[in-house]
């Protein structure tokens, strides 16, 4: 009974079945225990044979590549917040290096002085160039202004000449014009102001 139940594998079944079948008739009571012990003894064999994937699993374990850490490979650490003060340069002596001897002080001083002189010199050069440009612009503007004035003077002169010609052509009209000019000169521009409308309140 027991051997038939447990044995599912064809090969195992045929083997055990054959053996069991042969033994059954010989001993009934004791055979049970025997058969049980036999079944137990067969279990590991069944497990090994009944699992076809087991050998495959063992192979994958063997193939697994070794895992290296970043430090072993020497890859620089990325995306890490490492403040400047925290990172310590390798192979450098710990602590500050003071400048107290005269030689090193003079060296630094000379370097700083040269750098500053250069900066100031370039600043001055730039300022001078800008000044030159400004001066040139100013001269150009003055020239343009003088030209404009000259043109205005010319037109004025031409107008005066025209007036003179008219004066020579008709003396009567010219005399009248002269009189009007004299009148304006005497009264000034106040004459025009006299015509200005005024508002006054009527007495009650």
């Amino acid at each position: 009974m027991a051997p038939t139940r447990t044995i599912k594998n064809k090969h195992a079944g045929s083997k055990t079945g054959g053996a069991g079948g042969g033994k059954k008739p010989s001993s009934d009571g004791i055979s049970k225990t025997k058969s049980r012990s036999g079944a137990k003894a067969n279990l590991p064999a069944k497990q090994v044979k009944g699992r076809p994937n087991l050998p495959g699993l063992d192979k994958s374990k063997k193939k697994k590549k070794p895992i290296y850490t970043d430090k072993e490979l020497g890859i620089p650490e990325l995306n890490m917040v490492t403040p400047v003060g925290v990172t310590k340069p390798r192979g450098k002596k710990k602590g500050k290096v003071f400048v107290d001897d005269k030689e090193s002080m003079t060296t630094i001083l000379a370097l700083v002085q040269a750098e500053k002189e250069g900066q100031i010199e370039s600043k001055l050069m730039r300022a001078r160039q800008m000044e030159e440009i400004r001066e040139a612009r100013r001269i150009e503007a003055e020239k343009k202004e003088a030209e404009r004035k000259a043109k205005l003077e010319d037109t004025k002169e031409s107008l005066r000449r025209k007036r003179k010609r008219n004066k020579d052509g008709s003396t009567g009209k010219g005399q009248h014009e002269e009189e009007s000019i004299a009148e304006v000169a005497a009264t000034g521009t106040k004459a025009a102001k006299a015509k200005k409308k005024r508002v006054s309140f009527a007495p009650e």
């Binding site: 500050k96 003071f98 400048v99 107290d100 090193s104 630094i108 370097l111």
Partner: peptide, 9 residues
């Protein structure tokens, strides 16, 4: 203390 190189600069 004396100044460091950078501080002196």
């Amino acid at each position: 203390r004396p100044l460091t190189d950078q501080e002196m600069k």
